[in-house]
């Protein structure tokens, strides 16, 4: 098995870990020893617990709240593209777990509200979004499994997760905009991917 492959069981394990314990716990496992110097850009996202006290840190209170730290590498040592892509797959699994936390919170939130005498979660407009969320989760999970060596596919999977997190946060209304809670963690998940995944949207920065 090469560095560009990921066993489904590992991906599922990371997803479950992040779903249960959050982004920082999942990231710590997914890094598999990669340090700040391996990041493809000028800043790496790391679990705060793994960052030395004297590290050059880009302060970000919101990220700190969920145990993530943005670090400027002291030395250069960008990981080879294949290794970065493999990490992108593992990070994708972690982000899936974070997204599922957000989805579960959203469903619980909407189940406790009523609009016009009906449970909000039963409203058609909302059900449509929640159904799309389940579809996107399944699609991303399988993209990461089926095409783990294709950098563009991995970047696309991350972009889809960023889009999905936003759709779910919207369903929370203003409560999805609080600095605490799963929507805020999902935003830090987006920033984490931005640090590690080249062109996690459309790969246009290379053009």
């Amino acid at each position: 098995m090469t560095k560009t492959e990921i066993r489904p069981a590992i991906g599922l394990g990371l997803e479950r870990l992040a779903r249960a314990e959050g982004l920082a716990a999942g990231l710590a496992e997914a890094l598999e020893g990669l340090g700040a110097e391996a990041a493809p850009g000028s800043v790496a996202a790391l679990p705060a617990a793994a960052v030395p006290a004297d590290a050059d840190v880009a302060a970000h209170p919101l990220a700190a709240r969920v145990g993530i730290c943005f670090v400027r590498p002291a030395v250069s040592g960008i990981a080879p593209p294949a290794e970065l892509t493999a990490f992108g797959v593992r990070l994708g699994a972690v982000r899936l777990g974070v997204t599922r936390r957000l989805l579960e919170h959203t469903v619980a939130h909407l189940s406790g509200r009523t609009i016009g005498g009906e449970q909000a979660v039963r409203k058609q407009l909302i059900q449509g979004t929640l159904a799309e969320a389940e579809v996107t989760i399944a699609v991303v999970r399988h993209m990461l499994r089926a095409e783990p060596a294709v950098a563009a596919a991995v970047a696309d999977a991350h972009a889809r997760l960023t889009g999905l997190d936003w759709e779910l946060a919207k369903l929370l209304g203003a409560s999805g905009y609080l600095a605490t809670g799963p929507a805020a963690e999902a935003y830090v998940s987006r920033l984490t991917a931005h640090c590690w995944i080249p062109g996690s949207g459309e790969l246009t920065w290379l053009s």
Partner: peptide, 16 residues
């Protein structure tokens, strides 16, 4: 999101 894809990784953290 377009900006994210149009800029090198980590740019958002370097440009607060």
């Amino acid at each position: 999101r377009w900006a994210e894809s149009a800029l090198p990784p980590g740019t958002f953290l370097d440009h607060p």
